[in-house]
Amino acid sequence: MDYVPHSQIPGHKIKQTGAVSLKGIKKQFNFKDRELKVLSEFSLDVQPGEFVSIVGPSGCGKSTLLRLIAGLDDTYDGTIALDGQRVAGTSLERGLVFQDHRLFPWMTLEDNIALALTNRQISKDAKAKLVADHIALVGLKGFEKAFPHQLSGGMAQRAAIARSLVNEPKVLLLDEPFGALDALTRVHLQGELQRIWLAQGSTMIMITHDVEEALYLGDRVVVMQANPGRITHTVDVNLPHPRDRASPVLHKLKDEILAELTNVPEPSNPIVRLIKGDDQ
């Protein structure tokens, strides 16, 4: 594989843990006596500290996939392993950020984050320090006592990221984390996530609809198709972080992926023709 994981790029914290291995994942839902295949033979290996983006149309099973890795759903065929250990149920080693922030409205920001630490056997002071550090990491210092409804959508999502990172998980799963935010906030938070990832070094697997976001953040972009959900294509993005959004490489790759997702060949675009092999 000629892919260079960015954990090996200077400046990025090198992690030895957080390798996610998905082998032959099959998942189906039974819907009114009909079997609905959601995932079929999905296999993917993610390196420690790698940022993998998964893009695909609605209904391609990408959210289901994250729920399986997180351990919220245990009914599937195949194996999911973290650092060689098969996953079973939820674990503090695997964090998950949802599209909605899912903060509890009756708790302050710091209480919300501290809730994630209820199962950790560490001293109260150590917990308080972890909470404070992670509030600082996501840039929410000064809002510790704020309730979720007092925060903007972007701030609430930062808080959700802090909550999911407070246990220092080996892998952070992000399910369209910025999907519900306005365009400007989204761009801003993408930059923030990149900074957090570089500072923190967890493996990250992010689901998104936004191809530009997938490319801007990902070391690798996995393209999925629906019915049944499967990988059709993987794109390595060999650009150092932090990245320049205006990079022509990103734009080329974006056109390529979009063309595949929308499945409309664009004769005017030589790259698309090249990729799709229909340049006759």
Partner: peptide
Amino acid sequence: KSYFEVSSLYRAP
């Protein structure tokens, strides 16, 4: 259901 999911994610007792 999302409340139960968050609680499960963090393995809250």
